[in-house]
Design a protein around this nucleic acid. Structure first.
Lengths: 179, 179
DNA sequence: CGTCCTTGTGCAACAAGTTGCATAAGAATC
DNA sequence: GATTCTTATGCAACTTGTTGCACAAGGACG
């Protein structure tokens, strides 16, 4: 039940149309929550019906026409309540770790390349986050909310650092064996 | 499409019944892939129909009767093919990071306690993994496959270390503000 | 002997996420 | 003025994961 809350957060930060939201979910919001445009449009419909958001007027509600949404007080209240609810961390479900475990049983042939590919992807992601950090959070200019958002971004950054470190270690192990 | 492969891997490591699998998914397998018993039973049925596994004979196929499964050659082949397929890492979807970002907008009241709770949970998980590491991977007694499995476990360990470190940092930030 | 607990398997309904495609306005191109 | 590209919204079908409950065998207890 997190997607509606992700959308409410995004809309509070800045009212947007479905496609704009999709783009934001592909970039900044993407480092802690991902979603496709289908999910987003569907959820926007539900949120509107529930009275949590509304379409800004002055736009014809026609197909192919941009439709901007803003959060209503009820939506903000729902988001605040959700933030206060306590929720256990979800258990991990990582396909790469699983595949490595499977490789331990059926053979590792070709798996080194896959590890290298992932390493490159995570390095690229890390570089992107670091660039975002420099752009969005220059030193000594943090408001209250900025400091929290920075903390969230640092979470994304450290996660990517974890992956690059682990993949590097894994590759070292592989190279020691294959040569 | 990873659950069937997780089950194949588990069954190759040791033939098991549905409930035994469920228990293994709650412990060792759980640090890279989680699943409920419902998912497991459903998937066992599908895998059997697909000819990837079979129930060991000598057991009446009655309700409430234990039913052990083993992997057939076709299942092993499917698993090997899956390990060789390349698959991109899935984008992150973490509810706690999302909630912190939401808290930056609607207020952080009470969120420190939630962070502390998560920190305790992750510390406990980390301790458990470290105990597993000592038990299952004593120094200098690694086979080929053991080294890979150890690598996977170290992934789980480092992930928990990441969380404890990030949560500690986040709490420091919170305490600086609240006092 | 009845009922209660544990172990074990499983159905059904639902919720969340994914994939493929349809539709439509408007601008660009020729 | 017909075609094609981009921006934008959306439906339908499917797959995956979750929740709640039902059913059954066997042992434990009084």
């Amino acid at each position: 039940m997190s997607l509606p809350h992700a959308i409410l957060t995004a809309l509070l930060e800045k009212p947007s149309s479905g496609l704009e939201l999709t783009r934001r979910f592909d970039r900044s919001i993407g480092y802690f929550w991902s979603a496709t445009h289908q999910q987003i449009y569907r959820e926007l419909g539900k949120l509107e019906q529930a009275g949590h958001i509304r379409a800004l007027p002055a736009q014809a509600p026609a197909r192919g026409q941009k439709k901007e949404y803003e959060v209503l007080p009820a939506g903000r209240a729902e988001l605040a309540a959700w933030v206060r609810r306590s929720e256990d961390p979800k258990p991990i479900r990582d396909a790469l770790l699983l595949r490595l475990r499977a490789a331990a049983v059926v053979g590792t042939e070709g798996f080194g390349d896959e590890l290298r590919r992932h390493l490159a992807l995570h390095r690229a992601q890390l570089a992107e986050y670091l660039a975002m950090e420099e752009r969005q959070f220059p030193p000594e200019r943090d408001s209250e909310a900025d400091r929290l958002r920075h903390l969230v971004l640092r979470g994304g950054i450290e996660l990517e650092r974890f992956w690059t470190a682990w993949l590097t270690e894994a590759l070292a192990e592989f190279d020691r064996r294959d040569c």
